[in-house]
Nucleic acid binder design. Structure first.
Lengths: 342, 342
DNA sequence: AATTAGCACTCGACTAATTAGAGTGCTAAT
DNA sequence: ATTAGCACTCTAATTAGTCGAGTGCTAATT
């Protein structure tokens, strides 16, 4: 347990270091308005804090730098918990600008987040667990190509172009569409492969000549694409941080960013409320020098997506946490509003 | 005019520098198999080349480095012109992997280009001057929302979610769809706004109650999105180049890359055949340290898109030019094949 | 006349050596 | 319990010194 004085000093150190990225010395701390101790006293406190592992020296006669344990304490005890109804009306503003579609709104949100914070932002989803097939259609483009279009109740449109197998003719295609619409209507997206494999396959066997080819394409179309999208913004922001003065770090950062699956995985761990993972707390090696702050947004009770901000461990936690909290609320509200009539 | 010997030496210098990124000295050159002069002779030739501006010294006693004029000469006179029918079957391979859609093929092509070359690749388009509306559809998702889907003869599917205005009912929507399909079928994409403004507007006025609202949404849907897309790949490759050891350079590079419009503009200057712009020949300040190689691809006689590769001025021109030439041909062929049945 | 060997010279890259300054820990005074 | 004072430590910046790759020029060689 830390004394009030230790907490104060720790807070001042971290606040200062977040701003300056420079080791903080006793004199600097002593000069702050809310600190009324001499450098010597502060040095004693700092020695204690160091012994407990909250701060570190970069070398034997340097000022102190927060350790990961220090940041953890800071995040857990030294910053105010975001209040329920913080709003920044970000999404409202986006909609006012004339963006009505999920995809665009999410994209814009990511951009704004990264602009405000100067970190890299991720938004995952929304993954619609409630997503069901609304309509299926095949539009032929030419004698040899066609596109199959799937519309869900959430307004998500998936499409895939394919070559029409030689032995299939227009009436066959029509039959296929009819079978699909009949059997897949209102089926949740994740159940499609299963349905395809059982009922649909059997029906096609009965009614469509040479069903194998077309069945193969359908499978490919519905299996391959994973409908949850990841939006990344502010990839270049990290370059502004003074700790990124090392080419090797930059390289590994960009390598990591290009690997969208890994990032999606990180975000899938997000849960209701703000979650802060600092440095080595991160599972992924490539971001062990970073802090990741995530939260989720819901539709009703169900979590459907996640938001994340990645920055240096020396992150503006206070600002970012408040912000993410607000945005998460706004995303949830938007979704709720969107679906309230369904 | 350069003598044969000067050309040889210049070529050797550039070839070596492209590989090593290090200033080339007379001894190094002298050791090459195809060079049979002593270092002293080569030094004389180099002095001449320097006087003529083809090579430079980094300091008074360093080896030589190609100047932009040197690269220009190299590109114009010292590398073989790509032969007509170079093929690498890149796109064929992509299609064999099961990608049939334009968008995917183009995306993949960009990825492969950047993988092979280790530079950053851009592909613009295809801008379908020949793109026509194949089918339009409105699917209602709920009493208050619907999605409008547009399919083109190229397999491009565009969709937009919108809220249904209060006063519009299902039968109105049906009428709208009918009018749209009737009037817009086979209309080139770029003519849609015009058509909407004239015929469609009038018809809607006549047949649909309260057409204004819905007309507004339609306009927004079809105006907003610009259908020419830019695909970028290999953004991190540039970090592998030894000349990018300077954070400032990296920063300005990434700033530039994020500005897609500027890049699209650069690519729009591409023309039939390979075009190489070296260093300061580039209009855009941010890439005055780079070389950009562009080419276009056609559908019939018409240029519909462009391909570009951005790398250091010390680029593997020979390899890249051959490659781009081949890919451009393949893209054109693919488009041609695609449309021959339409 | 063209080529090459020889040599003095230049300059960057690297390695010590030196110094200044910020910051510490400890002791003794308040 | 707090603080002033001071010796000590370590980095960052500067300077000096050395090495070697490479040049330009001159004179010898082919």
């Amino acid at each position: 347990m830390l004394t009030a004085r230790q907490m104060l000093i720790l807070q001042v150190i971290i606040d200062d270091f977040i701003k300056s990225a420079q080791p903080v010395g006793s004199r600097t701390i002593s000069k702050k308005d809310n600190v009324s101790y001499s450098p010597a006293t502060i040095r004693n406190v700092m020695a204690d804090l160091e012994e407990m592992g909250y701060i570190e020296k970069t070398h034997s006669s340097s000022g102190r730098v927060p350790s990961e344990k220090g940041y953890r304490y800071y995040v857990d005890h030294l910053i105010p918990f975001p209040t329920k109804d913080d709003k920044i009306n970000m999404i409202e503003d986006i909609i006012k600008e004339g963006y009505f579609e999920f995809e665009q709104i999410v994209q814009k949100s990511a951009e704004i987040l990264s602009d405000i914070t100067n970190y890299t932002s991720f938004i995952l989803g929304p993954a619609m667990f409630e997503t069901r097939v609304k309509q299926l259609q095949i539009v032929t483009l030419s004698p040899t190509t066609a596109v199959v279009i799937l519309v869900t109740n959430t307004g998500y449109v998936e499409n895939r172009t394919f070559s029409i197998p030689d032995k299939i003719n227009a009436s066959d295609l029509e039959k296929v569409v009819n079978i699909l619409n009949d059997r897949l209507y209102d089926v949740p997206l994740e159940k499609i492969p299963e349905k395809l494999n059982s009922e649909v396959k059997d029906l096609m066997k009965t009614y469509v000549r040479d069903f194998r080819e077309i069945y193969k394409y359908l499978r490919a179309a519905f299996f391959s694409e994973q409908p949850v999208k990841l939006y990344i913004s502010g990839k270049a922001n990290i370059l502004m941080q003074p700790e990124f003065n090392d080419i090797e770090k930059i390289r590994s950062f960009y390598m990591m960013i290009e690997n969208e699956e890994k990032i999606a995985e990180l975000l899938k761990d997000a849960s209701d409320g703000i979650k802060v993972t600092i440095g080595n707390e991160n599972k992924l090696d490539a971001i062990k020098d970073f802090s990741l702050i995530t939260t989720s947004y819901q539709l009703g009770e169900e979590q459907v997506g996640a938001i994340g901000l990645l920055g240096p461990t020396r992150m503006e936690y206070k600002k970012v946490i408040t912000l993410l909290h607000a945005v998460s609320n706004e995303m949830s509200d938007m979704l709720h509003f969107w679906f309230k009539n369904n």
